[in-house]
Every structure is written in structure tokens, then in C-alpha cells.
Design a protein around this nucleic acid. Sequence first.
DNA 1: ACACTATCTCTACAAAATAGAGAACGGAAA
DNA 2: TTTCCGTTCTCTATTTTGTAGAGATAGTGT
Lengths: 112, 112
Amino acid sequence: MGKTGVMGAFEEMVLLTLVRQGEAAYGVSIRRELEERAGNSVSMGAVYATLDRLESKALVRSRVGEERESRRGRPRRYYTVLPAGVRELQQTRAVRERMWAGIELDQPAEPS
Amino acid sequence: MGKTGVMGAFEEMVLLTLVRQGEAAYGVSIRRELEERAGNSVSMGAVYATLDRLESKALVRSRVGEERESRRGRPRRYYTVLPAGVRELQQTRAVRERMWAGIELDQPAEPS
DNA sequence: ACACTATCTCTACAAAATAGAGAACGGAAA
DNA sequence: TTTCCGTTCTCTATTTTGTAGAGATAGTGT
């Protein structure tokens, strides 16, 4: 995490997706949810590179799924947030709240 | 701004500081406020590099202050957010709200 | 003219974000 | 059982963002 106490924007979103999906989170499901919420496409490379970084920082852990899942394709690698990851999310939110405190932006115009 | 519709974390903080400080924002005042809110030191290099990038993306504009400010030192360069910058802040906030929607994190333990 | 001070600029590098191609795995089809 | 095929992961490479620190600059005051 940077000196400001706020983690990278994409790292944060990936971490939040892990919190939301619990034990079921793996590459493709993470990407799908990210795309839904962002309203835009996200590459697998972006997702996995970020997961790798989070893992090497010990904010998440991963395990390879059971071979017999009665399903085609390569076994999934499932990801879970660790307590340290939750703490970084909390910290990030706290600092950002201080940054936004008292800010008033005009409402974006409604598409008519 | 990234494909996810969320801008970089430091860029966002700098932009917010500009909104807050209005016409009075310049390198040193921006850094001071960033440090106060983050609770950590921030280098001038970090601030100026970010301001330059924001300017080249036409999210902020800058002007050199009046020479006669009855003050020693090099003239200040003042920075102001442009409407495009405000829109990016709004967009960033909107996407992030969707990302955080429904997330429940345990309260961080109070230092006793 | 000279020193002093506040501020800015430059260079360099580390970390994060992103794309795209391709490899691996294992069920299904033949 | 051999080949095919869909799913998921891995690797390489590039761009963007974040950060530090030294040093150049433009004025004020002496």
C-alpha cells in the first residue's frame, strides 16, 4: 500500500470482489463481477496479475480446486481474502473518507 | 482513467485537494493538506508529477502567480480543477460505490 | 551585488494496471 | 484410446501511476 494509506484502485476492487464471493471466487467469476459493476470489459491478465501481487503481499491466499468437479477445463484456482487484506480495505476506506470529507460536487446531469 | 472508470488513488486525492482549496491551491499547500489527511509524509516530486499528468490529460489547468506577492521565493504555480476533472471524480465515486455496495467488514478493533 | 528562502523542475526508478497470446487440463466425442 | 474442445490459468511485454531526492530558479531584503 502506498504511503498515503490507500491501496491501488484495481487492487481494492479485486479484494472487494473476494469479500463478496467468499469461498467461490476464482479468476473468471472475479472478472465477471468486476465487469458487471464497472460496466466495462476487464482482461484476465489484469485480474491475475493483481491477484498474484495481492498474494505475494500476503493479503490473499489461493488454493487449487478439486480435480473431480465434473466439469471441463483446467482446475480452478480459488482465492480468499486474509485478515490483513480486510485491514487494508478498512484503512483505505478510512483515509479516503477523510479525503472526501466536506467535498461538494455538482450532481452529474441526468441523461434525459 | 482506467477501464474500470476509477482513476488512480493518488490522482484522486490531489484532485480532491484542488476542489477543496479552490483558487489558492499550489504545490506546497497541496502537499500540506495531503499529509494532514493521510497522516504521512508526501514528497513534492509525487505531487508535481501527478499535477503534470493531470494537466496533460486536461483535468486541471495551471497559471503562474503574480510576481508581486510581497514574498520571497520563486513565483507559485496555482492549479485549478477543470470540469472534466470534476466529472472524473464523480465517475470514480459512482463506480466505487457500486463496488462497495453491500460489503460488511468487521469494525477495526479500537486501540485500548 | 549577494545571500537567503520558498517553490518549482528534472531525472530516475518502483509499483500498479492492462493486453494478448498461448499453454495446460480434463471431459467428451469418435 | 486418441483427438478435440471448452475453460481457466500463465507468461511476456508495455503503459500508466506513484515516489524520492537533488538541484535549478526567481524573487526579497541587505
